[in-house]
Amino acid sequence: MSAVSPTPASPASSAAANPGIPTSAQSAPAAASWVFAEDFVPEGDAAAQARVEAEPLGVEPLSRGTVSALTFLAAAVQARAVVEIGTGTGQSGLALFAGMQPDGILTSVDLEADHQRQARRAFSSVGIASQRFRLIAGDALTVLPKLSDGAYDLVLVAGDTLEYRDYVEQGLRLLRHGGLLVVTHTLQGGRTADSSQDDDDTLAVRFALDAVTENEDLVAALLPVGDGLLAAVKR
C-alpha cells in the first residue's frame, strides 16, 4: 500500500488545535487506577498462554483490558457470526468465544499459517469444537470480498495497520444492522494523538478513524483500553 498523506481533519489533531473542545486530560485516571481497570477481569490460563506465545511469533499481544472488552462486546450483541482480521495466536479469538453465543462461529483470516496453528491449539485447549471456527490463511483483502454482505454480528480488525481503512470498508459491508465494528491498536502507542507523528502506520490509523467518524450510519466510541479500541455500531 502506498504511503498515506496526512489529513488536517483527523479527530486527534482537531482536538489539539482547538482549545475550545473539551478534553478529559486533567481527569485521566492515575497509573494505578488504569492498571486496576486493565486487570479487573481475571485472565484465564489459555489466554495467558496465547499472550506468551505471541511475542516469539512477532505478534503484538492485546492487553487484559482489551481482551475483557472484546468479550463484553461480543456478549453485548449476542454474537453468533464473527469475522476476525488477524488471527494472531488465538488471544483475541478466545476473548470473542468467551462472549459469543454457544453456537457462534468465528471466521478468522491471517497471512501466517504458523499463527493459525497456534490459535487452533489455543481453541482446542479450552474445548472449542473445530466446527465453530474457520481459520483462513490468506490475504484479508482477497478473502473478505468473498464473504456475505450483512451476515455478521461483529467484525474485529487487528491486522496490518496500513490496510485498516480498507478493512473498515469491508467490515461495514459484512455487518448486519446493529452489528459491531471493533478495531484494535488505534492509539498506536500515543502516536495517533500526537500531530507531529506522520509515519505511514499512524496516518493509516487516523484515516480509518476518520472513515468511521464521518460515516453517519455508525455510532462510535474510542475506548482507552490497552493501545486503544475503537467500537462502532452499524445503525
Score class of each variant (00 low, 15 high):
Gln188Glu: 09
Gln188Trp: 09
Gln188Thr: 12
Gln188Cys: 09
Gln188Ala: 12
Gln188Phe: 12
Gln188Met: 12
Gly189Ala: 05
Gly189Arg: 02
Gly189Ser: 05
Gly189Phe: 05
Gly189Leu: 01
Gly189Val: 03
Gly189Glu: 00
Gly189Asp: 03
Gly190Cys: 09
Gly190Ile: 07
Gly190His: 04
Gly190Gln: 03
Gly190Thr: 07
Arg191Trp: 14
Arg191Tyr: 14
Arg191Glu: 14
Arg191Gln: 12
Thr192Ser: 14
Thr192Pro: 12
Thr192Cys: 14
Thr192Gly: 05
Thr192Tyr: 07
Thr192Asn: 03
Ala193Lys: 13
Ala193Asp: 14
Ala193Arg: 10
Ala193Leu: 14
Ala193Asn: 10
Asp194Ser: 04
Asp194Tyr: 09
Ser195Gln: 13
Ser195Tyr: 11
Ser195Asp: 15
Ser196Pro: 14
Ser196Cys: 11
Ser196Leu: 15
Ser196Asn: 14
Gln197Lys: 15
Gln197Tyr: 11
Gln197Ser: 08
Gln197Ile: 07
Gln197Asp: 13
Asp198Ile: 11
Asp198Arg: 10
Asp198Gly: 09
Asp198Tyr: 14
Asp198Val: 13
Asp198Phe: 15
Asp198Ala: 09
Asp199Gln: 03
Asp199Lys: 01
Asp199Phe: 10
Asp199Val: 00
Asp199Ile: 03
Asp199Glu: 01
Asp199Ala: 03
Asp199Tyr: 05
Asp200Leu: 00
Asp200Cys: 05
Asp200Tyr: 07
Asp200Trp: 05
Asp200Gly: 05
Asp200Asn: 06
Asp201Ser: 15
Asp201Pro: 03
Asp201Tyr: 11
Thr202Gln: 04
Thr202Ile: 01
Thr202Leu: 04
Thr202Cys: 01
Thr202Arg: 00
Thr202Val: 02
Leu203Pro: 02
Leu203Cys: 06
Ala204His: 01
Ala204Gln: 03
Ala204Asp: 03
Ala204Val: 00
Ala204Phe: 01
Val205Lys: 04
Val205His: 06
Val205Gly: 07
Val205Glu: 05
Val205Thr: 07
Val205Cys: 06
Val205Asp: 01
Arg206Asp: 12
Arg206Thr: 13
Arg206Lys: 02
Arg206Gln: 04
Arg206Gly: 04
Phe207Leu: 15
Phe207Asn: 15
Phe207Ala: 15
Phe207Cys: 13
Phe207Asp: 11
Ala208Val: 06
Ala208Ser: 10
Ala208Cys: 08
Leu209Ile: 13
Leu209Pro: 10
Leu209Glu: 04
Leu209Val: 14
Leu209Met: 11
Asp210Leu: 08
Asp210Phe: 12
Ala211His: 10
Ala211Pro: 06
Ala211Ser: 08
Ala211Arg: 15
Val212Tyr: 07
Val212Trp: 04
Val212Ile: 09
Val212Cys: 02
Val212Arg: 02
Thr213Ala: 11
Thr213Leu: 10
Thr213Lys: 14
Thr213Gln: 10
Glu214His: 08
Glu214Asp: 05
Glu214Phe: 14
Asn215Pro: 11
Asn215Arg: 07
Glu216Tyr: 09
Glu216Ala: 10
Glu216Pro: 09
Glu216Phe: 05
Glu216Gln: 14
Glu216Gly: 02
Asp217Asn: 01
Asp217Lys: 05
Asp217Trp: 08
Asp217Thr: 02
Leu218Ser: 01
Leu218Thr: 02
Leu218Trp: 04
Leu218Asp: 01
Leu218Pro: 00
Leu218His: 06
Leu218Cys: 00
Leu218Gly: 04
Val219Tyr: 08
Val219Thr: 03
Val219Phe: 05
Val219Lys: 00
Val219Arg: 01
